[in-house]
Design a protein around this nucleic acid. Structure first.
Lengths: 220, 220
DNA sequence: CCTATTATGTGTATTAGATACACATAAGGA
DNA sequence: TCCTTATGTGTATCTAATACACATAATAGG
C-alpha cells in the first residue's frame, strides 16, 4: 500500500506564434530515447505544489511562473518499474522568457503542441489533457496573459489566443471585448518591430479582480 | 519517498431541494468523533478511479453513479500520522437514490452543503473545492441531470440547479433554454404529486453528444 | 360540495452581447 | 519612391439573455 508519488509538469510557452511544450529525452530504460514530460519524485517533507515548483526550477531554471495542478494519473501499470502515481501539473511561461535547461540541456527541446513525438509512459495522455485544460482555461481566466511578458502588444495577445485555440480570431472583435472588460492599461511605450510600431499594454490585475468578484469571466 | 495514497470521495445528492453531502463520523483518533469525507487507501493493484469506485460502493452501496476526480491534496502535515497524499473525487447521486450505508451505518449522514460541521483533516478544504467545482460544472455540463432519476419533471430539474447554485431561477427562461438545447425528451408519463400533475422528461444523451461535438455547452 | 391553496405551464418585449465585415496609416526595405 | 506588411478603427445585423403575469389542474379542508 506504499506507493511512489511523482509530479510531472507540462511546460507551455508560445514561440513563433505557436503553442510549444518542453520535452526531455530519456537517457535510461524504460522508454530510453523517448521524449517525456519533465518530472520527478515528491520528497518526504514537501507538498505537491512545492515538488512541482522545485522540478520546474531544476529542469528549466524558471521561477515565478504560473503553475496549476492538472490531474492525477494512477494506473497500476503506467510505469513498468512499479507502482507510481503521478500528480500532473502544467506551467505557463511567458513568450521569450529565457530558459536555462539544466544538466539535461542538450536533451530538452520545445515541441509544437500539435506535432508531438512519441512519448514515454502515459505522457501523451497527460499532455492531451493539459492542452484541453489550457484551451478551456483560456476562455474564462487570464491564462493568456501569463504566456506574455509584462508588456505586450494587442497583436501579441491575440496571437497567444490563436495559437492555443488553433483558430484565427477577428482583430476588431477581439479588441472590442478587451476594451469592454477594461483589464488592459495602455503604456506610453511602443514596440518597434520592423513595421508600424504597436502600442504596448500591461494587464491590470486590480480591474480583473473586481470583474471576478462580480462573477464576470473572460469571454474568448 | 514512499508515500501512502488515499482516495476521498465527496458524495453529493439532492434532498428536500437542498444540496447534501454524505459524511461519516470518525470512530478513532486522530480527529475522533469529527465528521469526515468517506475514503480509504489505494490498493497495490487498482487504479485511482477503481479505488474511488470501490470506496464509494463500500460506504454507500452505490454503483453506476457519476464519479469524477477533483484534485489531489498532499500537504506533508495534512495527516498527523504520517505522509498521506489523497486524491479527492466527487460523486453525484440521483435524488431519492437508495443508500445502504455500510458498517458505519449509524455514523453516516447527509449534511447540508451550506451548513457543515467541523471536519477532520483538511476535509473542509476538499469539500469547499468540490462544491465550487460542482457549481462550475453545472453551468456547462450535464451534471444537473446526474442528480436526478431517469425520469424527472422540469421543476425537479430546476430545483437541482437552484439548490446547487444557491439562487432562484426564472421558470420560463429556464425552460426556454432547455427547449433551445433540445436535450429533453417528453415522456407520456406524469408525476402526480398532490397538485396538478407534471410531465416527466428524460435526458437525451444522443442529442447532447451532438451539441458537444459542435462545441455547444450548457448555458445555465 | 364548494372554496382555498399550490404547483404547472405558457409568450413577448427589451437589452446586451456576438459576429461579420473594409480601409486608411505608418514604418521599413527594395 | 514605391511596395510590403502590420497597426488601428466603427457599424450593422443577428442571436442570446433577461424581465415579467396569469390561466389551469389537481388536492385538501371546511
Amino acid at each position: 500500500m506504499s506507493i511512489q508519488v511523482t509530479v510531472d509538469i507540462v511546460i507551455f510557452t508560445i514561440r513563433d506564434s505557436r503553442l510549444k511544450v518542453l520535452l526531455i529525452k530519456r537517457g535510461i530504460a524504460p522508454f530510453k530515447d523517448y521524449m517525456a514530460i519533465p518530472g520527478g519524485f515528491v520528497l518526504e517533507d514537501e507538498s505537491l505544489d512545492t515538488a512541482a515548483l522545485r522540478e520546474l526550477k531544476e529542469e528549466t531554471g524558471v521561477d515565478n511562473v504560473y503553475l496549476e495542478q492538472l490531474y492525477s494519473f494512477g494506473d497500476p501499470k503506467r510505469d513498468p518499474r512499479g507502482r507510481v502515481v503521478t500528480v500532473a501539473y502544467y506551467a505557463l511561461i511567458p513568450a521569450g522568457h529565457p530558459i536555462k535547461a539544466g544538466s539535461d540541456a542538450s536533451a530538452a527541446a520545445w515541441y509544437d503542441a500539435d506535432d508531438l513525438p512519441k512519448l514515454a509512459f502515459d505522457h501523451r495522455r497527460i499532455l492531451d489533457y493539459a492542452i484541453e485544460r489550457l484551451r478551456n482555461k483560456l476562455e474564462y481566466t487570464t491564462a493568456g496573459f501569463k504566456m506574455l511578458p509584462e508588456q505586450f502588444t494587442l497583436s501579441e495577445l491575440q496571437s497567444v489566443y490563436e495559437a492555443v485555440l488553433g483558430k484565427k480570431l477577428d482583430k476588431r472583435n477581439f479588441r472590442k471585448k478587451l476594451e469592454l472588460l477594461g483589464v488592459l492599461k495602455a503604456t506610453s511605450a511602443w514596440r518597434k518591430t520592423g513595421r508600424k510600431p504597436a502600442r504596448l499594454y500591461t494587464f491590470s490585475a486590480k480591474k480583473f479582480e473586481k470583474l471576478k468578484d462580480k462573477g464576470i469571466l473572460f469571454p474568448f
